[in-house]
């Protein structure tokens, strides 16, 4: 298992109750597995219009692998400008 720190922004901060959370994730988990685990722990994520995961400042595919020292962020629908 690996302990992953996740950054939250916008409404994800409200859903997580803070700007960072930590979760235990299987070694070599995919982004999809991370999302499934997050949605189980924080069901309100499923009510969002959509959300993305960013790994090391890039939008990640569901199949992408996550490793322990990656910078992971949950990106709810953006609304800048």
């Amino acid at each position: 298992m690996m302990n992953i720190k996740i950054l939250a922004f916008g409404i994800a901060k409200d859903i997580f109750g803070g700007s960072t959370i930590s979760i235990e994730l299987d070694e070599n988990a995919t982004t999809k597995q991370l999302k499934t685990q997050l949605e189980t722990a924080y069901p309100r994520l499923k009510q969002l219009a959509s959300y993305m995961v960013a790994v090391n400042n890039e939008y990640a595919d569901d199949a992408g692998l996550i490793t322990e020292h990656d910078e992971i962020a949950v990106i709810p629908p953006v609304s800048g400008g």
Binding site: F9, G10, Q47, L48, P76, V78, S79, G80
Partner: peptide, 22 residues
């Protein structure tokens, strides 16, 4: 407006809402 990770919250007299979240 579609891709850059920036968020805005609208604050009204009777509440607030993260734009486009839902």
């Amino acid at each position: 407006k579609e891709t850059v990770p920036i968020w805005k919250k609208e604050v009204f007299e009777d509440g607030e809402v993260w734009v486009a979240a839902h």
